[in-house]
Design a binder for these strands. Structure first.
Lengths: 229, 229
DNA sequence: GCAAATTAATGATTTATTCAAG
DNA sequence: CTTGAATAAATCATTAATTTGC
């Protein structure tokens, strides 16, 4: 019984994003919105100041206590020293253009499900352009692949290439065909999970260390795999 | 099935070797207007040595697990039939009675989706009874939960109405939407990937070290693939 | 001109399926 | 057949471009 409903949830905060001081604020990524092109931003207004602390973050999700009946021991996740929270918990990866560019390039190059080793290296490389972890790379490929697929499906479906057919027929119930993409689905299994570099804090991943420093032994992670042999 | 992927993306490989002049296609997030990427983060140190980004390294010619003598190409992951034979030696986890017993106990104790830390500890404990890895624990819970659920579903279905039928809501797609199990389904998010114990090769995870050594923070995980061994 | 409200995009998780070892 | 392993689909959750109101 433990209980302890301590929420493991801590406050999020995007810290690493220091000020946008000079230059214009176009550092940011693109708009997630509709693909319309319109440049905005531009550098005139000095305002770029991003929101101070705005945040609806106040809306804290209130994550429920994950009750685990696990026996004994509760975590001691909280930090004794309230430092700037550098904790991973709340902030999600926010890829830079360089990172996205590289990932897309790899994707176009037919990479779909990189293995641990590849992820490790990609992460190391991308780490040069901004904070990033292996899981981000892993997820990126998963999501990109999936969304690319659904986009294509949607296209082939509703919009057969009829020059002018304003009324794309929407499939009733029949789902789309189930053909498996050539590049993807279920084909071979066997993959071992890996381990890997420990990127920490708000510090950017140091590629070099990660890649080369094999000696320190990397910590591993969870679904991990030993096998190296 | 099969079929062929005639088109190969090999050419892509060459692509990767290009320099960082990448084009960064603005497929999505990128915006044509964006003044190139270099500005990574603006104001901070521009030092940047920005690495050149050589993807070549990703495709590491062969570094992986040494697969003795087998010379194969690692390129084109697209291969229709990647004969990635798994490991000849049989590698899948073969749980012992004690391990299963403990896992089931935990399951009955309401544990469904242990987080990294928990997995870490469980693994450590179970490691006392036989070789095991974090991923095994992870998968066990996933599978057990899923199968337990489908078993129940099957029962309630074939068994006509049970004492109390929740009357599941069915969507037009035929999907059942009604209530989600109280246990698990999609409700809370937030889990941290984890990190974790460093299991060394074939060595069993040492609980003590793992548990206490907790300095790890966020590590990550991902799949890796052994290419055979 | 700015900032809250909208909204599309997409990062992160969980569940459903499928494959395959034993 | 049972079940460990792995991938794809569905979903949740957060971010940032765009809209809207002042």
């Amino acid at each position: 019984m433990g209980i302890s409903s301590m929420k493991v949830h801590q406050f999020a905060r995007g810290l690493w994003e220091h000020e946008p001081s000079l230059t214009l604020g176009c550092t940011k990524r693109l708009r997630p919105l509709a693909p319309k092109l319109a440049n905005s931003t531009a550098g005139d207004t000095t305002t770029t100041a991003l929101a101070p602390f705005d945040l609806k973050s106040f809306i804290r999700p209130e994550s429920g206590p994950r009750k685990l009946g696990s026996s004994d021991h509760q975590e001691k996740k909280d930090s004794p020293h309230p430092q700037v929270e550098t904790h991973p918990g709340g902030t999600r990866w926010n890829p830079t253009q360089e990172q996205i560019g590289i990932l897309e390039m790899l994707y176009r190059g037919s990479m779909r499900t990189p293995n641990a080793q590849q992820i490790e290296q990609i992460t190391a490389q991308l780490g040069k352009y901004g904070k990033i972890e292996g899981k981000n790379v892993f997820y990126w490929f998963q999501n990109h692949k999936a969304r690319e697929r659904q986009k294509q499906k949607r296209n082939s479906l509703g919009l057969s290439h009829s020059p002018r057919t304003p009324t794309p027929v929407i499939t009733n119930l029949g789902e789309v065909v189930g053909e498996r993409e050539e590049d993807s689905p279920y084909k071979r299994k066997c993959r071992s999970w890996g381990f890997d570099c420990s990127v920490e804090d708000s510090v950017v991943c140091k590629a070099d260390e990660v890649v080369e420093g094999g000696r320190g032994r990397t910590l591993e992670l969870f679904p991990l795999h030993p096998e190296g042999r």
